[in-house]
Computed example of a mutant assay.
Amino acid sequence: MYITITRQHLGNHFSQSAGDYVAYLEKENEDKSPEDREQFFDQNNNQVSPERVVEEIDKNTAKLKKREPKFYALTINPSQRELRHIGNDPDKLRQYVREVMKDYAAAFHRDREVTVDDIKYFAKIEHERRFKGFDRQVKENQTYRARIAKLENDLRKLERGEITGNPKAIQNEIKQLIWDAPHKIDGVPIKQGMQKPGLQTHIHIIVSRKDAENKLSLSPGSRYIESEASLNGQLVKRGFNRNQFYDQAEKRFDALFQYNRNYVETYQARKEFNTNPYGYFAKLMGLPTSERSAAFKILGKAGVQIPKLGIPKSKVELALKTIKEFKKAMRVARTASNIEI
């Protein structure tokens, strides 16, 4: 499970309307019949119109300055393993979102308890993802695609009589480049804009910066976890505990759907990897044999290439060079929208 929280931001200024973002989230509904479209939903309603989403978010901005974000965007990205476990069921995902937003509310540090009823949010399920320019597969195919594009352009020039050459030889070279390209879908080299295969379902959530009564500012972008500040001579509580939120959101999924989470899928493992790679690998190698085997399968499916030096067999063998190679492989696999781990 991978969750991101980003503030509303367009260029060098904050828009005064959520309209553009809502329109962006409607892109997957284009050319679909009404019964096939995914609808926005909130804590109590399964169908909320895009117009109402824009209206509700736009009018809930009391006392916010022009250069302050009016809303935040959450993206919940279940892994393909998690999606298979729940049968990619949108009803279960809606159930999960409604529970997760309770954890989101509980992560705020305020003078009074913040509950999900204080949160004004709208969520939408999407089923597709497309490759972007910074995806590993696109980058590793780039040299081949550039050469293919050049040769295809040469063929067009040959047809127009602008250059001379052997079209058959050029066509054979193109076929060989397509064959050699490291990443393909149905025989076609992957490029930017192509739809990703497999289960890619994820959820976008637009959350108002202000509470449901348009009085209290609830910013998950706060740099504070839990602190107190003086306001008009009084101490007030502030902050948002992201670690708590991410950890609880993961546990919520496991409890709801009886999911047996492997160590490498956990939020705590991701933190350990970033802050203490030696500790991460030590725990990985200390897992029971069956769980360690499953962990390496999960890592492999995520695109982590095992270093040529091999995986260390014990803590003593956690050589610096091996860890550096594995860290590099992990970073490559986890760039862009890779959500398997």
Rank of each mutant, 00 (worst) to 15 (best):
M1S: 11
Y2T: 12
I3D: 08
G11S: 08
S15D: 12
Y24A: 08
K27L: 02
S33T: 02
P34Y: 06
E38K: 06
D42C: 03
Q47T: 15
Q47F: 06
E55P: 06
E55R: 13
N60G: 02
R67E: 14
K70P: 10
Y72M: 12
I76G: 05
S79P: 11
E82K: 08
G87H: 09
L93W: 02
R94F: 09
Y96E: 00
M101R: 01
M101K: 02
D103L: 01
Y104A: 07
R112L: 07
T115F: 08
I119S: 02
E126S: 03
E126A: 08
F134E: 13
E140N: 07
N141D: 03
Y144W: 03
R145S: 09
R145H: 09
R147I: 08
R156Q: 15
R156E: 15
K157P: 10
G161Q: 02
I163N: 01
I163E: 00
I163M: 06
P167M: 00
I170V: 12
I178H: 10
V188Q: 10
I190F: 07
Q192N: 10
G198K: 04
H204A: 02
V207S: 07
S208W: 15
R209F: 10
R209V: 00
N214K: 05
L216D: 09
S219C: 04
G221Y: 01
S222C: 03
S227I: 03
E228K: 15
S230Q: 13
S230E: 14
L231I: 15
N232E: 11
Q234G: 06
L235Q: 14
L235V: 11
D247G: 13
E250H: 09
A255I: 07
L256E: 01
F257M: 09
Y259I: 08
N260I: 13
R270Y: 15
E272M: 11
F273H: 08
T275W: 07
F281A: 10
L284P: 00
M285R: 13
R292T: 06
K297D: 13
I306V: 10
K308Y: 15
G310C: 02
K313H: 05
V316M: 11
K321T: 11
I323K: 12
K324L: 11
K327G: 08
M330H: 06
I339R: 13
